[in-house]
Nucleic acid binder design. Sequence first.
DNA 1: GGTTAAGCGAGACGGTACGTCCCGTCTTAGG
DNA 2: CCTAAGACGGGACGTACCGTCTCGCTTAACC
Lengths: 200, 200, 200, 200
Amino acid sequence: MPKVSSKRSRSRPRGRPAGGSDELVRRILDATLELLGASGLAALKVDDVARAANVNKTSVYRRWPTKADLVLAAIEQTPEPPVPFRETGDVRADLTRLLRKKAKVLAQPQAVGLARALAAIDDDSTRELARTLRARSLAPLVEVIENAVARGELAADTRAELLAELLLAPLTNRAVMLGLPIEPTLVDDVIAQLLPRGQG
Amino acid sequence: MPKVSSKRSRSRPRGRPAGGSDELVRRILDATLELLGASGLAALKVDDVARAANVNKTSVYRRWPTKADLVLAAIEQTPEPPVPFRETGDVRADLTRLLRKKAKVLAQPQAVGLARALAAIDDDSTRELARTLRARSLAPLVEVIENAVARGELAADTRAELLAELLLAPLTNRAVMLGLPIEPTLVDDVIAQLLPRGQG
Amino acid sequence: MPKVSSKRSRSRPRGRPAGGSDELVRRILDATLELLGASGLAALKVDDVARAANVNKTSVYRRWPTKADLVLAAIEQTPEPPVPFRETGDVRADLTRLLRKKAKVLAQPQAVGLARALAAIDDDSTRELARTLRARSLAPLVEVIENAVARGELAADTRAELLAELLLAPLTNRAVMLGLPIEPTLVDDVIAQLLPRGQG
Amino acid sequence: MPKVSSKRSRSRPRGRPAGGSDELVRRILDATLELLGASGLAALKVDDVARAANVNKTSVYRRWPTKADLVLAAIEQTPEPPVPFRETGDVRADLTRLLRKKAKVLAQPQAVGLARALAAIDDDSTRELARTLRARSLAPLVEVIENAVARGELAADTRAELLAELLLAPLTNRAVMLGLPIEPTLVDDVIAQLLPRGQG
DNA sequence: GGTTAAGCGAGACGGTACGTCCCGTCTTAGG
DNA sequence: CCTAAGACGGGACGTACCGTCTCGCTTAACC
């Protein structure tokens, strides 16, 4: 006698997904970012990620062998906010605008949380990722500076990347390491110190 | 419940220690720092700390209810290296020397490990501690700058603390967040950008 | 958090077991009984049980949240020894045989150990279990007595359960509470007192 | 300069006690009994005993090296309630009265708690104590029975001690092992079974 | 009456077991 | 082949209580 079918109705399909597993990956990484930003790395449980992504833990571990890998993958794929930035031709003004944007991002706890997670994972590949993200973050500044140099607005021997880093470091340092809010005047102060008026 | 009167022979002394518990505290915190610097926060086991300190785990938890508390306490008591620093009267030279010292410290993996542990523990009291350590770290720079201002070597409206932070931030940022070694030239570059020749 | 992707080589299989978990349960409870009988409740360590059952401690606690729960479950599942008992039609002889059997059981330290564990766990559910075991233990006696009543060998107003308890109580009392061996004559004495010759 | 006296007012004297330490001992054992009866052996903490006795833990361990020793000492010194018992000359009536008294005692949770503690401590000296207490408990019954034998009310070959044990065992068994209340009729039933009318 | 020695209170300590938590592994069933 | 479901091994965490031991103080007892 065959058993009576005990199948419960299910909300989502179980077997092999139809259109590849891209959506599943996206859901997992999104959930990871969400939880990571919300409560930090230590409070992030893989089980919670799976539940939040409406996915089984197995499907997480199949792709990322450890929690660290998962977290790094999630951070890595953070979509770079499209920077519809148009230079005005005034370096100081342009850099000020860029730094203000960055300050705004750093005012969000999630962004700080991600950065701290990055610091917490002590690993070579993590450092590499950090450097990649750093480069990505510096790029607009570097471009603005190089253009200013080309225009002759800045000295020809200006080292664009170094200057960009000097501009940005205090902001991230405050937000990430010290947990301080970035006062509106800080951006101006930094600019003033690094791009003295006489230089322009 | 054990059998009646089942005393075992013992090798090491038990009970309340003779010379107060200050030494015990010191041993624990030293061991914590040691292990923390050696392998990072995640690899730090309280049991290992206890063993290394020749102390029972109970005695650790009696004082610091959490691993995080223990780590913070250990970091907090890091002895400030006595800075037998004598100003030469030349700001650039003095600041260069101070930054080089700092760069040397940041070249040690332990120091970086401590800083990362500080970033990893996401907690208000941790941020406060970070700020305290930051202030302690800035102090010598600030003093040098203020003296230079008093001598007229720097502009009267120089904001000493801000300048100090701008000088230091790139170094710590590189070492802690990016995991990069600090090239010898970096210090000079930072100085050059923030204290242009004409200013001196 | 550990390093990324730090898989270790392993000797024993992990994960969900192949053949369901019934066998695992059996192993755990068997080990519990074994150790319980051997050294008593206080000396029983859950870790030891797990080790003896070749199982992880987690797997024990997953099922029985407390040591007490584990012990009760183990005692509860003690297989009732199949009693291939055939009445002879002589109450005195039959009861004597039954009591002798019981005496034999009570001569084993393990059985006494279990009973004492039952006394040590002071808990309502424990008492209930004790009563259940008691009933199970009395059953054969009760049956024999009732049959004898039916045959007219015993008075019609004989209260079977009471009589059974009176017969058994002295034996268990001696073994469990007093820790005395049960002398061979005790069974006869009890029978003689409770089933005087003239009565048969 | 001498320190200002920081003595807090104290309620009880500290140093060596005046009249020996008998009162201290009494307080400790009383507290032990109290707590033991109230919540059982497992829930009994030596620290609690000390606190309840208004005494330091040291003073407990100075006298009884283990918790078991303490408990046994406490049980041992339970004052035998003075039994102002006068025989009437009627065995059945006398034994009934004695058993009713015992039943009354066994109705108190504390008494049951003590008995269970005695069962829980698995130790030779504990068994010996149990036997001592048992003997003490049987004594009045034995005396009554022997007197009845002397009077010719009971058969000359009556084994007083055995009979007493048979009478008592069901009661204690019910209360201690099974946690059952002792119904009023039980005493009569036991008497009826063991001292049939025709025998008197 | 001063000195010695015996307790005592206070409380930290070592030790052991408990029960919890979460990571990463692995089997089973099913689509 | 890929997924859901979920038990399992492993190992660190933090807790609780036992019995030990040191210290300072106070009082009794003895000289």
